[in-house]
């Protein structure tokens, strides 16, 4: 992946191997080589909500075509529109 000529600066407490960093007063200003490096860092900081796994598990326990656990399928069509 080719680096972009424009570097992106972000303030963070994290130290990144792929980025150069300047330390000031306990904070770290990080230069990201590319937008995708910044996005990759953001992705690494974004946890999957715990409840998602439980929802998927509950849905898979239902036969195919059954109502979804969030109840959307139980609402009348006009309520699902709004």
């Amino acid at each position: 992946m080719n680096p972009s000529p424009q570097r992106l600066q972000a303030v963070t407490h994290e130290h990144l191997e792929s980025a150069s960093a300047q330390h000031t007063e306990g904070r770290t200003t990080v230069d990201f080589e590319t937008p995708e490096a910044l996005i990759a860092w953001d992705r690494s900081q974004t946890p999957v909500p715990e409840e998602l796994r439980a929802r998927v598990t509950a849905s898979l326990a239902q036969p195919a075509g059954a109502a979804s656990p969030n109840g959307d399928d139980l609402k009348p069509w006009w309520r699902r529109l709004f």
Binding site: A10, V11, T12, H13, E14, D42, Q45, T46, P47, P49
Partner: peptide, 17 residues
Amino acid sequence: PTTAGDPLRALETKELG
């Protein structure tokens, strides 16, 4: 959504996100 732990770090992560 943010990582748990240091509130300042969580806020920064949120803002950057």
